[in-house]
Amino acid sequence: ETKSLTLVLHRDSGSLGFNIIGGRPSVDNHDGSSSEGIFVSKIVDSGPAAKEGGLQIHDRIIEVNGRDLSRATHDQAVEAFKTAKEPIVVQVLRR
């Protein structure tokens, strides 16, 4: 079962304390579909994302501050987090 969660993150020394993997390839599949998503791959101990109620590894990131990342490329997702103003509201899907 997958549930949708909304989390609020604040940077600590400029970092949110997690890494992402995935992202849509720069070239779409011929039918326009994509199974890619942006997923949390690593969480830094005691970083902002590790706090209670924070992110978990394998969370799929859907949205950052209202910006849809469900079909974003990896670079677009990285840029969305880099430029996001605080508080950073992150919507994820968690299995």
Rank of each mutant, 00 (worst) to 15 (best):
E86G: 05
S41G: 08
E1V: 10
Q91P: 01
D68H: 03
S15R: 12
S13I: 06
H30P: 13
G22R: 11
F18M: 04
T2I: 15
G32D: 11
H30K: 12
Q91Y: 02
G47L: 06
G54I: 06
L5W: 04
A50W: 07
S15Q: 07
E1N: 15
K85E: 09
K42L: 05
D31V: 10
N19S: 15
V8L: 14
L9P: 02
S34N: 15
L5A: 04
S15L: 07
A84W: 02
I62M: 15
L7P: 02
S15H: 08
P87H: 02
D59K: 00
D12V: 13
T6R: 11
L55D: 00
G47H: 14
I57V: 15
V78G: 03
D68A: 03
E1T: 14
F18L: 03
G53S: 08
D12G: 06
S15P: 03
P25H: 09
A50N: 10
E1K: 13
A50R: 09
L5N: 03
G17L: 02
L55F: 04
V8S: 15
S33W: 14
G37P: 04
K51T: 10
S33H: 12
I43W: 03
N19I: 04
V90I: 15
H30F: 14
D75H: 11
I88P: 02
E86F: 03
Q91V: 06
S41P: 00
S13C: 14
T6E: 05
A72K: 02
R71E: 11
S4W: 04
S70N: 05
N65K: 00
D68Y: 02
G32N: 15
G17W: 03
S46F: 09
D45K: 13
N65W: 01
H10A: 10
K3Y: 15
L55E: 01
E52L: 10
Q56H: 15
L5I: 14
E36Y: 08
S35V: 10
S34H: 13
L69E: 01
Q91W: 02
S4Q: 10
H10R: 14
T2F: 15
G47F: 06
T6Q: 14
V27P: 13
S13N: 15
N65S: 03
G14R: 05
F81Y: 08
G37W: 02
I57Y: 05
V27N: 12
E52G: 11
G66F: 00
I20K: 00
N65V: 01
I21Q: 14
L93Y: 06
S33D: 14
K3A: 10
F39H: 05
A84L: 03
R67E: 10
G66E: 02
D59R: 00
H10P: 07
F81S: 15
V44L: 14
A84N: 01
G32Y: 13
N19Q: 13
R60C: 04
K3G: 05
G23F: 07
E1Y: 15
V89F: 07
